Simulated assay, not measured.
Amino acid sequence: MSDTSSRIAIVTGASGGIGKAVAERLAADGLSVLVHYSGNAATAAETVAAITAAGGKATAFGGDVADEDAMGRLFQHAIDTFGGVDVVVNSAGIMPLAPVVDTDLDTFDRIQRTNVRGTFVVSQLAARTVRPGGAIINFSTSIMKLQMPTYGAYAMSKGAVEGLTLILAREMRGKDITVNAVAPGPTATPLFFEGKPQEVIDHIAGLNPMQRLGTPQDIAEVTAFLAGPGRWVNGQVLYTNGGAA
């Protein structure tokens, strides 16, 4: 595990926000990284450029995480390009917010398709592909403990991700592959800022004992730990939120 130069990571949703920070952090540890994107090839290319400019190895590949054929091609691209898969990070997700009473069911279905089916599709492929000594890392949310209004559909999707994570960890018995979830608190990403007035952002930041929002780099550090040295952490949800919950 000390030699990361031959290890390969797939990071979904890596064109921006937390996924981008995770991809760059894993590359800094010496992993070759497949940068997945859904709709923005340009920002994925920027992530790849940042990694290669820092001396790392990266390639970009697009596709819908909920489409098993597209994700099959993504995994094959990682194998063809780098030789295998050792780490899979499921950071792709969407977070439309509304009170339960006002949530449009088409929006609800879209959240579940990306966050639940997408995580399941990628985790299933990871379980079939990741080499011994590897790691599967899913993304939940600290909203599961904070229980803030308007996050009902999103929290429901992440509850499913936690259930999948804990069970898959047990199903990987004997394969030397860890399965964990990272549960960020409020983090300074475009996904978090979208639709929030500044006074709401300031209020949420002020609730944290650390008196700030998390940064994508804060979350990337924990993810890199699980991807590398944290081999005795398995079947866990790590709440990564500065003490907010």
Score class of each variant (00 low, 15 high):
74 L>P: 07
181 A>S: 15
236 Q>K: 06
131 R>C: 06
92 A>T: 02
65 V>Y: 07
147 Q>S: 11
25 R>A: 15
230 G>L: 02
193 F>C: 04
95 M>A: 07
102 D>L: 09
164 L>M: 15
34 L>E: 12
194 E>D: 14
198 Q>M: 14
166 L>K: 08
117 R>F: 00
163 G>E: 03
117 R>Y: 01
101 V>S: 14
13 G>T: 03
211 Q>K: 15
162 E>F: 00
69 D>N: 13
99 P>D: 13
142 S>A: 15
80 D>M: 06
139 F>R: 11
130 V>D: 00
110 R>K: 15
82 F>W: 02
57 K>S: 14
141 T>C: 01
180 N>C: 13
173 R>W: 12
143 I>K: 02
145 K>N: 15
168 L>M: 14
22 V>F: 05
74 L>V: 09
30 G>E: 04
90 N>I: 08
201 I>E: 12
73 R>D: 13
66 A>P: 10
71 M>Y: 05
141 T>I: 06
235 G>T: 09
118 G>I: 01
81 T>M: 08
210 M>C: 02
170 R>A: 12
118 G>H: 04
110 R>A: 15
76 Q>Y: 04
93 G>R: 04
49 A>C: 01
54 A>D: 13
240 T>E: 07
126 A>F: 04
167 I>R: 05
110 R>C: 01
192 F>D: 01
225 F>Y: 10
75 F>W: 10
168 L>F: 04
88 V>T: 14
185 G>Q: 07
9 A>Y: 02
96 P>V: 04
163 G>V: 06
143 I>L: 12
244 A>S: 11
110 R>D: 12
163 G>M: 07
238 L>Y: 05
230 G>V: 04
98 A>I: 03
26 L>P: 11
151 Y>E: 12
122 V>I: 11
166 L>G: 00
138 N>P: 11
55 G>C: 12
35 V>L: 07
156 M>I: 08
49 A>K: 01
152 G>D: 09
183 A>H: 02
107 T>R: 13
6 S>Y: 02
196 K>W: 11
37 Y>W: 14
166 L>T: 00
97 L>N: 11
165 T>E: 08
207 L>E: 12
